[in-house]
Computed example of a mutant assay.
Amino acid sequence: MRSNHPALNANRSKLETYILKSLAEEENFQKYRQYIHFPKDFLENFIKKCVDDYCLDKKAQRLKNFLDISLDSFQVLVHSAIRDSTKVVKDRSGNVSLWLDEFCRRLGDVLDLPRSDLKSIEHQETRDVEFLKEAMSKALDPVLENLKKDFAGVDMGPFQRKPHKILAEQLSGCWEQCPFCKAVCTNTIFNHDGDHSLSFHRPQATTGFHWYKTNHLVTDICSSLVASNCSIVLGEDHKIPYKNYRDAGPRYSKWSITPDTSVQSYWKWFVCHFRAELESQHCGKFEGKGEIPSQWKQITKQDVLSELEKQF
């Protein structure tokens, strides 16, 4: 499935691009909120939806087909174990006990079948292994047919390890978020050495930052602010130049924020498109120092989708 699903067949960076594309297409502000503030949970839920859509598609019936094929393979293995166990017993002039030993051994890699569970068969005074072979074969087929019927309405519930959780682990990495804009560190290794970093920061208005003693939301990005003469206000008498952001404490000291004034078109569009929602959520206004640049307002949804498409 991972190799066939476009959102899951590469790395987390590509998956993030698909997430951003999906969010832009839906234009659901509440989903954006979850993505910004709870990225790990959002990613897992997004993967779950991808898995469910892919596996439970009514037309393709991929999960049912997969289970049917797996069951057919299992049926071949069991019949082979029955046949081979019978041959060994006949060659050695063995008994039912030997047959059961051989049967369990041959299926040990594919089936959890404790030998002790079959002791009752030994006590039935069955000496004809050919009869045992035929009885086992005859009993197996209707059981498998009933299972195939059950597969018609199967979902992901019976899986002991949920496929979406396995994929989420494979596509995981560092989940530390920028202390300013909450963008996630792009390192693919959890608990990695060195600083946290990312390619593109977001306008700080996305997480509700205001300019000091105003209700004006900050449209600047972290990487442009660290190149400015602005300060981080940690308290009435506690201000630190953005250039020295690492001195603000542990949350900040482990981040490498390189001076850069470029802003992705995506987040420019997001700020413009959800202006009212951001102002309401963060009790602020895009006014004064937080005025949205006029160029941002020219960016369309199609522009950002086209930009994302180039990354696939």
Rank of each mutant, 00 (worst) to 15 (best):
S3I: 12
L8W: 01
R12I: 11
S13D: 13
L20Q: 11
A24T: 08
E25I: 06
R33V: 09
Q34S: 11
D41S: 12
L43G: 00
N45D: 15
N45F: 06
K49N: 11
C50Q: 13
C50V: 07
D53E: 15
Y54C: 02
R62K: 15
R62P: 04
N65I: 07
S70H: 05
D72L: 05
V78D: 02
V78N: 05
V78K: 04
V88H: 01
R92C: 08
S93Q: 15
N95A: 08
C104K: 09
R106M: 14
L107R: 03
G108W: 07
L111K: 14
L113P: 02
S120G: 12
H123K: 11
Q124C: 14
E125W: 09
V129P: 03
E130L: 05
F131M: 11
M136T: 06
K138S: 13
A139Q: 12
D141T: 15
D141I: 14
V143T: 14
L144C: 09
L147E: 03
K148D: 06
F151Q: 05
F159K: 09
R161W: 13
K162F: 08
H164Q: 10
I166R: 10
I166T: 12
A168Y: 03
S172W: 00
C174A: 01
W175F: 09
P179Y: 03
V184C: 01
N187T: 13
D195C: 07
L198P: 02
P203C: 09
H210Q: 13
K213V: 12
H216E: 14
L217G: 02
D220C: 01
S228C: 04
I232K: 00
V233M: 05
H238S: 02
K239T: 13
I240Q: 03
Y242N: 03
N244D: 13
Y245W: 12
R246E: 07
R246Q: 10
R246Y: 01
A248G: 01
R251S: 10
R251Q: 11
Y252V: 00
Y252N: 01
Y252I: 06
K254T: 15
S262M: 13
S265N: 09
C272F: 04
E279R: 08
E279V: 10
E279K: 07
H282Q: 03
G284T: 05
K285C: 02
E287A: 12
G288E: 02
G290N: 03
S294G: 11
I299E: 03
D303P: 05
V304Q: 00
S306F: 04
K310F: 03
Q311E: 15
